[in-house]
Write a protein that binds this DNA or RNA. Structure first.
Lengths: 234, 234
DNA sequence: CGCTCATTTGAGGAACTTCAAGGTCAGTGG
DNA sequence: CCACTGACCTTGAAGTTCCTCAAATGAGCG
């Protein structure tokens, strides 16, 4: 189950899908309860969102932040000529929707997803009163910034290298299992990497030929050499 | 002169190059003075940094945030094979160096520059006590995030379009003058856009031929059609 | 099974890079 | 003042990577 980690004590999204503080004997138990209540008050959902459906549109007012409980969310921009660029994928446990006033990217479900809506203004005013929340939010933004910077570094590499790095990253974020069950469509991945699906497919074929991975079925891959996958230079 | 804007009252970097609050008749003048003192206490510099010199290395501990007083700073990553990718340029008035614990990119002066060093821990603890500072910092990070996302959008476009968008952005950030005096080298720009200097040069030649800009001398350009520059589709 | 949608593969062409050569400009020393 | 130098930018031609278009194959589902 996904965690929303506000500092030392993680605030878990429990089985009833509400944000809850784990009950612990703690010196400041009362504070803990207050924080829990405050967090409950500002959240809505989790909302089930079907694959492909829009959560917020490019240009909408930034009234909410979002938290992925399950599934995958993508941020993207669609141009008039039909081109689409995906800026990021958000996996379970990740907070997204950081922006000033207006969203500059659309947010859409890349798979069926459960998403928590967090009222932005309430979360920010809570952060002003609670430094644990404040530091969590700051670290969430710097994390996303770092991830976005790595995405830029990706974009200046060769196609094969981009694909390998993407798969390695996904593999790590999903827990380094023997198999990598790619949750989003190849079109989504291609748009994220600035490639066509054909080039993406050919890159995967190449990597299969060189023994890094094997196709199992559909989008399920067998990771044969995860290290080499993450350290591909060409 | 560059401003470091902490909320409604901008804290200007004055002629003596210290962060100062403009003296104003205000209801909470005492608070203002305390904030000014606190900001003075956590800053060091401004330090003069020569073109090409490193401010912090990829991997260094993130002890400081930085503020550009004058000149241009670049964030970049250099690979063993000699490839270099530039993640961002920071212009006067911009705060940079956001990251968790360690810097993931090197920060270097792209031109001779004056840079203010701000002790990270002190600034963060100040933010915990002063919500005006906190909201300024949060907005600084979301701004940088947004800028970085736009950079990604750039990278999935055609070369000419990337160059045009870069020049248009630079032109706006530098105040939309008749002339655009490009401060950084073409190699830097190429590395920022994921292109070679040759492709960059050819793109500029094309844009000159189509009447958007003219070369004046060195890196000085005459902007003939700023609107078209920012809205180039191909 | 037969449908649809997503992925794979192939062939040809466009965009970008590489390599090589020439040009411009500012600083330096005669 | 002028030639010399080195760093930086521009241009051309050839080569590589990636995209486009077209067709085949595979997976999921009623």
């Amino acid at each position: 189950m996904a965690n929303l980690d506000f500092g030392t004590t993680p605030l878990v999204v429990a089985n009833d899908n509400k944000i809850l503080s784990p009950v612990r004997a703690s010196a400041n138990f009362a504070d803990e309860v207050r924080l829990t209540r405050a967090l409950s008050a500002l959240q809505r959902g989790p909302v089930h969102i079907y694959r492909g459906k829009v959560i917020v549109c490019d240009g909408d007012a930034a009234n909410y932040l979002f938290f992925v409980v399950s599934g995958v969310v993508r941020s993207c921009k669609v141009y008039k000529n039909g081109d689409r660029i995906i800026g990021a994928f958000y996996l379970p446990g990740e907070l997204f929707g950081w922006t000033d006033r207006k969203h500059s990217l659309s947010l859409e479900a890349a798979t069926d997803a459960l998403v928590l809506f967090l009222k932005r203004s309430a979360l920010l005013s809570l952060a002003c009163r609670n430094s644990r929340v404040a530091s969590t939010l700051l670290s969430a933004t710097t994390n996303e910034l770092q991830r976005t910077q790595e995405h830029i570094m990706l974009m200046s590499k060769m196609a094969k290298c981009r694909v390998a790095a993407f798969l390695a990253d996904l593999w790590m974020r999903l827990g380094k299992g023997e198999y990598l069950d790619v949750p989003m469509s190849y079109q989504d991945i291609a748009d994220y990497l600035g490639l066509t699906i054909e080039t993406l497919s050919r890159s995967i074929t190449d990597m299969e030929r060189s023994g890094l991975i094997s196709r199992v079925s559909g989008r399920k891959l067998l990771v044969r050499n995860g290290f080499a996958l993450g350290h591909m230079r060409n």
